[in-house]
Computed example of a mutant assay.
Amino acid sequence: MLIEHEANIRGRDFFVGDIHGQHRLLQEAMRRVGLDPATDRLFSVGDLIDRGTDSLVCLSLASRPWFHAVRGNHEELARSALREGEDSTAWALWMINGGGWVARSGVGEVRKILDEALRHLPHAREIAIAGKRVGMVHAEPPADWSRLADADPETLVWGRARIQRRDETPVAGVDAVVVGHTIVERPLTLGNVHYIDTGAFCTGHLTLVDARELLG
């Protein structure tokens, strides 16, 4: 459910929004900030795949030592589809939501890379940054971070209730939380929750931000 990260004493930390197979945009964003994989860390809010042509490459990032993602709803769509097969409702749902790239990459190869990636994709991460505790989930955090173990995994991966009601109530038990899932025109903060999915697959704008800048 949760992986915890100690402070990075060797370099910087960055957060990136939903990548959705946009590997070129990711590389460009990393070059702009001079991200050094030898010392810096990149924390991804999930949805590495679907709707983009380089989904397999982006999915393989999950096993890189400098790249730390959480599980998104599109990883869950793919997992269900590959488990239930091409004649299933789950497969049809994945195709509707951008899974067509599997035909180019090959089902066997996608299954292999996804199985490996899921080993590195918890539902939540907690990172020590500048003396603060920062949580990260794909979609919606619990009201109290200390109750994360009791949270519904589906809400963590699919939920939108907080942003739909523009809830500015801070998540208790943590200094800040970073999420993606819901496309915003520009990064948005409600309470202590930072929304950073700026719709790379449709806007061409992938948000990649220094953690210290995000936290002000």
Rank of each mutant, 00 (worst) to 15 (best):
E6D: 13
E6L: 12
I9W: 00
I9K: 00
R12V: 08
F14D: 07
F14C: 07
F14A: 04
F15N: 05
D18G: 10
D18S: 10
I19G: 00
L25D: 08
L26T: 12
L26E: 07
E28I: 13
A29N: 08
M30E: 05
R31V: 10
V33G: 02
V33E: 10
G34H: 04
L35A: 09
L35W: 03
D40Q: 09
L42M: 12
S44D: 11
G52C: 04
T53Q: 13
V57P: 01
L61R: 05
A62T: 02
F67H: 12
H68Q: 14
H68N: 15
A69I: 06
H74C: 03
H74K: 09
E76T: 13
S80I: 01
A81R: 07
R83W: 10
R83V: 03
G85T: 13
S88Q: 08
A90H: 14
W91V: 03
W91Y: 12
G99N: 08
R104K: 14
S105K: 08
G106Q: 03
V110Y: 03
V110S: 03
V110A: 11
K112R: 15
L114P: 07
D115M: 08
R119V: 03
R119C: 12
L121H: 03
L121K: 06
P122M: 10
E126K: 07
I127Y: 05
I127A: 05
I129N: 04
A130E: 15
M136T: 04
H138Q: 11
A139Q: 01
A139E: 02
E140C: 13
W145D: 09
T155S: 08
V157K: 03
R166L: 13
V171P: 02
G173H: 06
G173E: 11
D175V: 02
D175W: 08
H181C: 06
T182S: 15
E185L: 02
P187Q: 10
L188G: 04
L190C: 06
H194G: 03
Y195Q: 10
D197Y: 11
C202V: 14
D210C: 03
R212V: 15
L214W: 12
L215D: 07
L215G: 11
